[in-house]
Design a protein around this nucleic acid. Structure first.
Lengths: 214, 214, 214, 214
DNA sequence: AATGAATGAGAGTTCATTCAT
DNA sequence: AATGAATGAACTCTCATTCAT
């Protein structure tokens, strides 16, 4: 049995994805949930706080995978699992990516948190790349190349859905295509050792097939 | 001497970039320009029409380069010129990229035009890639690979600024970094013939150096 | 025929006096006047601007008398006229006095204007007093005494109605009593020359009598 | 150890003085005190009851001085002590004076109590004045003069702070100036016998000097 | 005594758009 | 071509108060 606070978050995410956070009024949320606006503001001090709550949750989920790696050992990053597991998350929190820039303009506290989060993400991804290069899963590269590998990865991870949504309404198929965007972007940087690894095998086919069970 | 209609467009672009299209009211535009709201609505039926006018203009400018190629001859696409020329355009129309998804949600007519435009762009870019592959400037690839090369290119072209804007306020430097995002993304697909070509030489250094004259 | 802007001011003053400015919403004003809230905000950028407009008008009216004196000549300040003429003004703008402190707390721009106005008033009244002392209408006094004569005058002028309103609902009679408050306060400072002057004769009786025609 | 009820009163007074009673919500009070709103409403039926409780307390404190006089004997009213003792009270309950009129408009029960209180105060002060006139401390005067002496006294006592607060933020210095307002207002009515009395000596200097120990 | 979730009305303000002139 | 007054719906947020526990 979800608390009212949880239900507000649930309903907000649903509406934000459907119509955009900026197009969803606090009254919409309250009405949809069947509570009074006053009650909503009892649980959250303002709209930005709802957004930040959602974002914080999102970050936790996405970085579980990345943070689970053991940097001391020869361990390949489970790109396949990362891609597959995040299909669902990407759908559930898609408004965060699709509206990002306007959210940053409208909510200063959110902007600050997002900035700090991105800086942190960059550090973590670089560390991960260094580790994967060290153990031969990713081809060595210059500092510049790495900087733009990181930034391009972020750009593609964050914005892939935007492209496919313009072309089709099939959200599930779009998300899979988005994962393939990430995969194909990364591929040129993978070593043969990576490509031969069991753990990466058939990811391409898995995502290309229209298997809606994923 | 610009007509009122042109001046409305100019002012709108300026304000949309500064504060976002969705955060700019028609009154803002009229006030900034020193005309009445009524007059603005005399020239444009509604806000969406202003947006569409701007978008149409943008498309024209960006595709000049791509359309100028002669598909009958062995001719390398001038990636360097494309990147450099578009620095300015990307700055001037940046709101179109940064706000894209919410604009699509809010303006149905714009959404329709954008959809058609994207489908058209995809065709053109694929044709261009086929041509460049034929003459050995780009490495051959499968249809799948090409689809994701195209989509990733669009994603990176459209969203690179979003990344750098979070990290810094220096718009000009951010735009240059964005061009490098495109360049580094394309690089693995270029053949040696391309990389050796005079016309691509030193593009990397040009953009990496802090040369503000660009 | 009054303009909409003037009618907004009229209606605002009426409502502010009846229920207090802070208890009157912009929607009240618009409803009472029969216009839309949007229209009200077309004419005034916010509630504070309405208040400031009213206050500015009030200041103009009240200081006409005081400013009309010729400081070069032996001329007695027309206290009687001042008191009688301001009966009406005091009624019409009474909310300004009755709510003053909360208005200052709630409207920062108004606070600033009021501060400047008070400083200005103090200067003017001191100049007037010096002049009246010079020509023997007011008894000479120390600087301290003058400071507190000025401040007490302001306090009584501004707050007399507050007292009588608690005791009675007869607004016109209350305002007259308020004028007598000012008169009796000033009286000990007047010279015999003043008290004998035709222009001050029978002011006391005039205000004490229940003559509602004033 | 203060009871919850007492602590609510304490906290309310503090907040009312800082931001005004009308600008302080019951939630503010509960939050500041660290109790629940429900609990606050357990102890007080509504906001008006808190206000009335505070007002009743205030009246008790202020009238201690006035009521202590023995009307049968030749005894001078201790104006000096009254002024000095009330400095503190005036600071502690200043919102009652500053917001009075809006409080009367907003709280009908409070209005009723205040009306009765004022009528009572008037009687007491008149009795006091008669007594002081009888024993030669105050100059004889007509009934009219006495009525306006009483009303002006109330007006000045109640509103002096309003004037000084506009000109300065130094609360303690403002309160002292306010006491001087009362003193200088009363002075013309005092007989030589009063002015020569030990008990009034040097009150002027005491308040004029910047002695912060008061 | 005390909690904290909930209500419903209402606050100030903004906005895209219309229309008579 | 242009003005500027007007609309009405929507927005975020606050408030005094209630009530089951």
């Amino acid at each position: 049995m979800a608390t009212t606070k949880e239900k507000i978050i649930e309903t907000s995410i649903k509406l934000f994805n459907e119509k955009g956070c900026l197009n969803t009024s606090t009254r919409h949320i309250a009405d949809k949930l069947g509570i009074s606006v006053g009650n909503l503001y009892y649980h959250f001090k303002n709209k930005e706080d709802i957004l930040i709550d959602i974002f914080t949750n999102y970050v936790k989920i996405v970085f579980k995978e990345v943070n689970s790696i053991n940097y001391e050992k020869d361990e390949m990053f489970l790109l396949k699992d990362f891609l597959l597991n995040n299909l669902e998350t990407d759908i559930q929190y898609r408004f965060l990516h699709l509206e990002l820039n306007l959210l940053l303009m409208s909510f200063p506290k959110f902007k600050y948190i997002m900035e700090e989060q991105l800086k942190n993400e960059i550090k973590i991804i670089k560390k991960l790349l260094d580790h994967q290069i060290l153990y031969g899963y990713i081809k060595p590269m210059s500092e510049n190349e790495m900087n733009f590998l990181v930034s391009n990865t972020w750009i593609i991870v964050t914005n892939n859905l935007s492209y496919w949504n313009i072309l089709s309404n099939d959200l599930h198929s779009n998300v899979k295509n988005g994962s393939l965007n990430i995969y194909y972007f990364i591929k040129p940087y993978l070593t043969q050792k990576s490509l031969d690894n069991e753990k990466l095998k058939n990811i391409e086919n898995l995502l290309l097939k229209g298997d809606n069970e994923l």
